[in-house]
Simulated scan of single mutants.
Amino acid sequence: MQRITITLDEELLDLIDRRVETQGYQGRSEAIRDLLRGGIREAEALPEDAPCVAVVSYLYDHNTRELPKRLNQTLHAHHDLTRSTLHVHLDAGHCLEVSVLQGPSGPVCELSRQLMVERGVEHGQVQVIPAPVQHRHAVDE
């Protein structure tokens, strides 16, 4: 087993410590390994080309330099995958966005990761749901 070093803010560390206590883990490392395994399994659940729908929710600091602009540009750059986004102002500095994505699992998961790893995004979660094969409606001419 290899040893690594990570930096966590106090709030996240408190959450991990509470999980250790409430779930009965032997220590932080065991809890973090379990959380990582669950996240990796979830991300690998569908083949890259499998059609899916994803709900991506992320809380971010609105005051982080140009973050709202970067998030918006990322979604626009992937307009073919973006179905809708809900933007909620929580307080003077924090916003919650919930984006609904649809498309092949690989690109949808990659876009989800791009959104959640932006500097200033404090919390993020994605739920990927297998979807029926996509079809386009004919446009009346």
Rank of each mutant, 00 (worst) to 15 (best):
I16Y: 01
T64A: 14
E44H: 13
V133F: 12
Q73K: 05
E66R: 13
Y25T: 04
H76T: 07
L81R: 03
L71I: 06
Q134Y: 10
G39T: 04
E44K: 11
N63W: 06
P68V: 03
D80R: 05
C109N: 15
S29R: 08
L75E: 08
Y58V: 01
G38S: 11
L101E: 13
Q102W: 06
E122A: 03
V126C: 11
H76N: 14
K69M: 13
P107R: 12
P104Y: 01
R41S: 14
V55G: 05
P47C: 08
E44L: 15
T22A: 03
Y25D: 02
D9K: 11
C52S: 09
G24M: 10
E118R: 04
N72Q: 09
E11C: 07
E30Y: 00
Q114H: 12
R37A: 08
R41I: 05
L90Q: 05
L8D: 13
G103R: 02
H62M: 08
R3M: 00
R28T: 00
L8Y: 09
H78M: 07
S84N: 05
A92C: 09
Q26M: 02
I40S: 01
V108I: 07
H87T: 07
V98N: 02
A43N: 10
E48P: 15
D9W: 09
L13D: 13
S112M: 11
D34N: 15
Q134T: 13
E21N: 07
L90G: 08
T74L: 11
R33D: 00
